[in-house]
């Protein structure tokens, strides 16, 4: 119980700390940035995968896929995975809060969502790093 008396009241906790020191503001900013990155990626992805129909029996598509399976692009895929997972799980957090879940404990919900991000990322990192190092997938 020592030190409890010195703790600032909840309402005053962030006063003077500056707007950008609050977890929720960073959550919001990263949500926007990851969202914008994903918009650009989606458009690029539609164009790239549509090369399957650019004449021939997928010759253009195969050469593009060969490029994107080089280790450096697989590593960049992992960066994309971080953006996707953060955006997805922060979105789940927002939808849960819309439904009234954890509205009194924002940080608990936020960090729980981030824990799911870390767990899912570990799976993708395992698959990708196995491929980068050994050149093989994890299932064959």
């Amino acid at each position: 119980m020592k030190g409890l008396g010195r703790r600032k009241p909840r309402e005053l906790a962030n006063v003077g700390a500056g707007l950008w020191k609050a977890t929720g503001m960073w959550a919001w900013l990263l949500f926007r940035i990851s969202g914008l990155v994903l918009v650009l990626y989606l458009i690029a992805h539609i164009i790239v995968t549509s090369t399957a129909r650019w004449g021939g029996e997928g010759e253009t598509f195969d050469s593009v896929m060969q490029l994107f399976e080089k280790p450096v692009f697989v590593f960049l895929d992992l960066v994309l995975v971080v953006a996707v997972l953060y955006h997805a799980l922060n979105g789940v957090r927002i939808m849960l809060m819309d439904c009234g879940v954890s509205t009194q404990r924002h940080k608990v919900l936020f960090w729980s969502a981030m824990a799911v991000v870390v767990i899912c990322f570990a799976i993708f990192a395992w698959v990708s790093l196995t491929y980068i190092i050994t050149g093989k997938g994890v299932t064959r």
Partner: peptide, 14 residues
């Protein structure tokens, strides 16, 4: 991507 990493190509996707 997880089950077909390294296998991507026209045949695989088709």
């Amino acid at each position: 991507h997880i089950l077909n990493i390294g296998q991507l190509g026209y045949e695989n996707v088709a």
